Amino acid sequence: MTDTVDSSYLSTRRATRLSTLLPVLLLATYFSASFVLRLLRGGDLASDEAEQIRLSHSLQLGYGDQPPLYDWLFYYFAKIFGASVDTLAFVKNGTLLLSCIFLCLAARKVMGKRETAWIAPLGFLSLPVVFLLSQRDLTHSVGAFAVVAFFLYVLALMAERPSTGNYALLGAAAGLGFLAKYNFAIVPVATVAALLLEPGLRRLVFNWRLAVTIAVGLIVAAPHVYWIVTHLDLATGDTLKNLRAAASAGMPEQVVAAWELLGAIVKCSALTLAILAIVYRGHIRTILGTSSEWTRVIGRMLVISMFLVYVIMLAVDATIMRPKWISIFFVAFPLYLAFKIEASGVQVPGAIGKLVALVGAVIFISLGVVFVGSFH
């Protein structure tokens, strides 16, 4: 009997170690391969990469119609290592890796040291904007991914220990988010609304320390906000023009905007949901039908964010919505699914291994396609 118990215990420990080792190996291999293949593609720069090289010669409060955080980050790395393809590839892949790390930390902060926490970073890798668009030509969005992941981690940290320091850290994350991507400003608003709708977490909003969060966020963003006010034409650039297009004949702009937004939402989330549906086949209805405190908070954050995006689209007469423009909000989507799976109590033997295999197949095939396509 004792031998049987010992054997079962050892098997469980081996399975736990394997479920931890496989995602770590995938992350290490993928980002190393991404770095190496970008170097092998040579010095032909995509538009965002060329912009980074051009702007790396000076440090300014603002540069154009994109916020400056990623420009600042690359500037300092370029000063140390030189403005080169190597540095571009290192900064981009390092920033994406940071996104994975912070999402995993956020999941573990809520769920504890459980293997389901790996669903968050693995799900993040399965987002098309991450494994495809980021490897082609994204910079500012990549920086925003990391800040959103950091914001979510600090939010979980603050819920566990609502200290003045954690409130200040959340404010710093919010300020950095605005400096990474202007539409990040929606995230704190959606967060406050989602917390107010959750009775057990309302205390986080009705706390004097929230003033510290706001103050720190404003201090972090203030220098660039001043630059925006004094360079309004340069800051707005072609943003509004890119959002607008002639509406379909006979279709109200409100309907066109809603259809565009819905299409972008599906493109951002469908593949990740499909992969998890394969891994947890037979249980997906149970998982989606289960809720917990944190699934409700993150789910409401996503819904409120999309509603605010739609309101903004109507306000500026926007009739185009590309997935990459709302991609920063979907950094939270894999975390939401991880919380759903945890709350449901569904356990599928070898689930993390299967998830690693499926996500690995998708991201490495895509990496190969991007590499081969760069020579045509």
Rank of each mutant, 00 (worst) to 15 (best):
I101D: 08
G373W: 06
A357F: 05
F90L: 07
A221N: 08
A120T: 08
I320C: 06
G373K: 02
P68T: 02
S99R: 02
E160W: 01
S366Q: 03
G373E: 12
L367N: 14
A361N: 07
L355Q: 02
L45D: 08
V85D: 15
L22P: 08
P188Y: 00
V356Y: 06
L105D: 05
A215R: 04
V372E: 08
V129W: 12
M306C: 04
R14V: 04
Y167A: 00
A264H: 09
F333V: 04
L358I: 07
L155T: 11
A338K: 05
G42L: 08
L337S: 01
L25S: 08
G123Y: 06
E49P: 03
W227F: 07
T95L: 09
A149E: 00
Y182W: 09
L273V: 11
G263A: 09
F35H: 07
L132I: 12
Y226R: 06
L201A: 11
P252G: 02
A174V: 08
S8V: 10
C268N: 15
A247H: 01
A257M: 12
Y9M: 13
Y70A: 05
A174R: 05
L18D: 11
A257V: 09
S141C: 07
A106H: 07
A106I: 08
F74D: 14
V187F: 14
T164S: 10
D44N: 12
L302K: 01
G112D: 04
V362G: 01
C268I: 04
V297Y: 02
Y30P: 14
S7A: 15
V255T: 09
K79L: 09
L69G: 06
D71E: 08
V154Q: 02
H231M: 06
L273Q: 14
R108V: 00
L26R: 03
L25Q: 09
G263L: 12
M1P: 15
L179A: 02
N93P: 05
Q347M: 10
A274T: 03
D65L: 03
L45K: 04
G350F: 02
G112Y: 01
S269Q: 05
N183M: 06
Y336M: 12
G289K: 00
M313V: 07
L276M: 13
L103T: 04
I304F: 04
F184Y: 08
L302W: 02
K267D: 12
A168D: 05
A149F: 00
V372I: 03
T164D: 15
Y226K: 03
V192K: 01
E198L: 00
H140M: 12
P199T: 01
F77C: 08
L210P: 10
S99N: 05
V154H: 00
L96K: 06
I53A: 03
S374H: 10
W294S: 11
L59Y: 13
W227P: 12
L37N: 02
K79W: 06
R296W: 00
L55Y: 10
F145T: 10
T272S: 15
F206S: 13
S32V: 14
D3V: 13
D65P: 15
S47C: 01
A89N: 11
M1D: 14
L204M: 15
I287Y: 06
